[in-house]
Design a protein around this nucleic acid. Sequence first.
DNA 1: CTGGATCCACGCCGATACTG
DNA 2: CAGTATCGGCGTGGATCCAG
Lengths: 135, 135
Amino acid sequence: MLPELDPDMFDPLCPSSALPIQIGDKWTGMIVLCLEHGRRRFNEIKVPLRGITSKVLSETLRAMERDGLVVRTAYPENPPRVEYELTPLGRTLLTLIDAARTWSRAHLPTLLDARQAYEAGLTGQPVPPVTSPDR
Amino acid sequence: MLPELDPDMFDPLCPSSALPIQIGDKWTGMIVLCLEHGRRRFNEIKVPLRGITSKVLSETLRAMERDGLVVRTAYPENPPRVEYELTPLGRTLLTLIDAARTWSRAHLPTLLDARQAYEAGLTGQPVPPVTSPDR
DNA sequence: CTGGATCCACGCCGATACTG
DNA sequence: CAGTATCGGCGTGGATCCAG
């Protein structure tokens, strides 16, 4: 069977929120990553998505289903079981996510440095020089 | 001198708003594209950005300056003149925008088809089959 | 377990008016 | 020309409760 999702697969301390690239809405990119290695159940996806509510998760998944990014399979059991899986179209987003990650590794520190320098400049604090690949 | 920006460089009928990829906030990606071929003045950028208000444009530009994506140069003249230019860091976003465009050419029609089929399904209308690279 | 239904807080951003 | 100031709508998404 598929290994379980790492609850910490999205490090809350990772500054990805500063990333100038976004895949879909707030959660879509992370959901794609959750489904990367195979189908997952609703509550399984929910775990790494620290604090997403059921409402928002089901809304996001339905929007993704509507756009043909995932397929939803409901089993008429009790308790109910529903599984989500990436479509080939959904899988094409993985390459974009990868591009975003590559960019982020190469350039996000530079952006963060610039932001910090800018804000220090506003408060009149002199800023120690930084060395980054760009700039 | 640099040729003027095409007022229609962002076709309002282009379904790019359905794109599941976004660079920065709502306008950042388009601003980067406006600055691709050289420095531009405030009102010059404003033209292709159909309907952006001065307030939002200056806010967006200041955020981009803060993040080290553009440099702002003000000339102490009258009337005032201000120019914006991409930094090397800002230029790195061009490759990402290109990746998004490539994805869009290859897969956005599929996504739009799926969306249309989904919504037709909701209204009980049968949907004529479509042929797209994915799915 | 997998959501739907409601209510609400917040932030983006557009409209409008004004300024150096 | 290049902004700033202020107001407000509207949509996203969080909290909470409820249901099959």
